[in-house]
Each structure stands twice: as structure tokens, then as C-alpha cells.
């Protein structure tokens, strides 16, 4: 039997991060399998209602440290270490995202705990948890067990789905935590500043990847329109970046970025391995290419052999309609 504590990150307006909610949902599921309880920890000025509402996702209890600032890891390490130790909690679970890594790592040191990162799945066995994570460019999955408790599990982005399973509201318990001397040595000057320029394609849920099959630079507009309709971003192959059709910051592949979005829509991309290694972990791969022998058709989830110039505009319209309606 093991209790699981999940860190729930929120923004300055009190909205909880999707990955945190996913982690709570996952914790609830696992807790029921281990016979323990799932709880959440929040810091900063979180209203009673907002905290209790985490019960919707399966948290039976929410620990709240009002005096602890949100957004920087080390004060939260102090909070979680105390909660874990005081309550004999077996595992700390984090949804994908930078803070999860920093807090999880700090807890590793503080509690002398084992940590697994980039976790894609967690399973329960004999009241204990085993974390699964991909290695070697996703060519193998390792099962990692914990020698002692507590164990720290840091999920990959989008690894845990949000599920409203809970009975209703969670019990909110306020905790007072003395912050470590060094936890107050970092101060947030500006938090979460949006900058117009390059969308970080590594964080996008949906990507439309454009390749040479687009034909010319101007045709990237087709990709942009399609991405827009899906609420995603545009990525590119080495060949088109080489040709100057799209910026290097969007290049995916062996010498570019590695991404694992929920949907990768490859248009006019042959699927050479130099590109494949950068996007093969995408949850869903849809390919449109006029060459039926293109390698991409060997590893996509849905492939359309056809003229992207004909298909893409119609697809964009259809998606807009579907969403609007």
C-alpha cells in the first residue's frame, strides 16, 4: 500500500497546469491499485474551492502551503519533503514540465530517494510502483523499480491523461513549512512572459511538418493554415530548411529538434531516417505524400497517397467547420 503525492502547478490566475491534472488522474488510478491514497500539494495563494476541486481528478486530500511562493522549485522541495516525511507518503509524482524536474530532483537529494525521469507510464505491482521510461532514442523501454520509499517519478510531457474520476471535493489541509535558507535565494522577477517570436515546437501538442513535397517556399502557407486550424505549430525537414523555405528553429530530425507531440501531420515528407529519429515518438502520425513508396508510410498511423495541394486546403476547411460546429 502506497500513498502518492502529486505536485499541482498553477499559473498566476489560479489555473492548474494540464500535465499536473494528468498526474493527479494517474495517481488516483495507481493509488486504487496499490491500496493507497492520492493527494496533491499546491503552493501560494490558492482558494479553498480551487484546491478542493482537485478532488474531481481523484485527489482525496490537498496540502496547501500558502506562504510558499509558486514558480520556483526549491521552496516547493521544502514543502513536499515535509509533507512526504510527516505523512509517510510512498511516491511523489510529477506531470511533464520543467518545475517537475527541478522539484523532483531536489527531493531526490533531500530524501535520498530514487528518481526516474521522462516516464511514459507507471504500473502498480504488489503495492509498489514501477516506472516505465523510453531509452536509446525510444528504441527500448526500461522498467525501473524503487529500492526504498519514497520514490520520485517525473513524467514526460503529455504522458498522463486527464481523467475526472474523483468523487467530488478533496479535503484541504494547510501546512506551515519553514523554508531552507537557500530556498529564498532565488527570486522571481518576471514570471511566464510570453514572447511573440519562435513558437517552441518542442512543446506543441500538434505539429504540421512540411517537406520538399510542398514544392516551393510559398506553399508553406498551406502548412500554416492547416496548423492554424488544428491549433498547432509548423515544423520542417532538413531539406527545406537547407533550401531556405523555413527557419532552422523549426527543423526536426537528427541535426534538428526531437519532438513527441500528440499529432504529427507530415506533408510532402519522405520519412528518411534523419527526419524520422526526430519525430518517431509522436503519439499519432498522419502522412500525406504523392509517392506510395515513401518510407513514411511504413511508420505512420494513417497515410494518404495523394496530392497535398488538393488535400490540404480542403482538410483545413473541414477541420475549421468541425471545430466551429
Amino acid at each position: 500500500m502506497a500513498d502518492i503525492l502529486v505536485y499541482a502547478l498553477h499559473d498566476d490566475e489560479g489555473n492548474f497546469n494540464k500535465n499536473s491534472l494528468g498526474a493527479i488522474s494517474e495517481a488516483a488510478k495507481l493509488a486504487s491499485e496499490t491500496g493507497g491514497a492520492a493527494s496533491a500539494v499546491v503552493v501560494g495563494d490558492v482558494s479553498d474551492d480551487a484546491a478542493a476541486a482537485l478532488g474531481k481528478y481523484g485527489a482525496t486530500k490537498v496540502y496547501r502551503a500558502k506562504a510558499c511562493p509558486e514558480g520556483l522549485a526549491q521552496p516547493i522541495v521544502d514543502v513536499m519533503a515535509k509533507v512526504i516525511t510527516d505523512n509517510g507518503i510512498g511516491y511523489a509524482l510529477f506531470g511533464g514540465g520543467l518545475l517537475g524536474f527541478e522539484i523532483g530532483a531536489g527531493l531526490t537529494a533531500r530524501l535520498g530517494a530514487g528518481v526516474t525521469m521522462e516516464v511514459t507510464a507507471v504500473k502498480a505491482a504488489d503495492g509498489k510502483l514501477v516506472a516505465e521510461r523510453p531509452v536509446l532514442q525510444d528504441s527500448a523501454i526500461v522498467d525501473v523499480g524503487y529500492v526504498s520509499e519514497p520514490g520520485i517519478i517525473i513524467g514526460r510531457l503529455n504522458a498522463f491523461d486527464v481523467a475526472e474520476s474523483g468523487a467530488g471535493t478533496a479535503e484541504v489541509e494547510d501546512v506551515e513549512v519553514e523554508l531552507s535558507e537557500w530556498s529564498t535565494k532565488a527570486t522571481m522577477v518576471t514570471r511566464g512572459e510570453a514572447r511573440g517570436e519562435d513558437v517552441n515546437i518542442e512543446d506543441a501538442d500538434i505539429l504540421v511538418g512540411g517537406g520538399r513535397g510542398l514544392g516551393e517556399k510559398d506553399n508553406f502557407k498551406l502548412a500554416e493554415d492547416l496548423a492554424g486550424s488544428l491549433g498547432g505549430a509548423v515544423a520542417a525537414t532538413r531539406a527545406v530548411v537547407d533550401a531556405g523555405w523555413y527557419p532552422y528553429s523549426t527543423q526536426i530530425g537528427q541535426t534538428g529538434k526531437t519532438v513527441a507531440p500528440k499529432l504529427y501531420l507530415a506533408v510532402g515528407i519522405s520519412g528518411a531516417i534523419q527526419h524520422k529519429v526526430g519525430m518517431q515518438s509522436s503519439e499519432n502520425i498522419l502522412a500525406i505524400n504523392k509517392d506510395q513508396n515513401a518510407p513514411i508510410f511504413e511508420f505512420c498511423d494513417l497515410g494518404v497517397v495523394g496530392d497535398l495541394h488538393k488535400i490540404m486546403p480542403k482538410l483545413t476547411e473541414a477541420i475549421k467547420a468541425k471545430k466551429g460546429g
Binding site: 502547478l9 520556483l72 514540465g97 535565494k185 532565488a186 522571481m188 511566464g192
Partner: peptide, 10 residues
């Protein structure tokens, strides 16, 4: 970070 660019003094 998760919500955009943080500026932190350390």
C-alpha cells in the same frame, strides 16, 4: 518554463 519566460534573480 511552463507558462513562458521567467526572469529570476539568484
Amino acid at each position: 518554463a511552463e507558462y513562458g519566460y521567467d526572469t529570476v534573480e539568484i
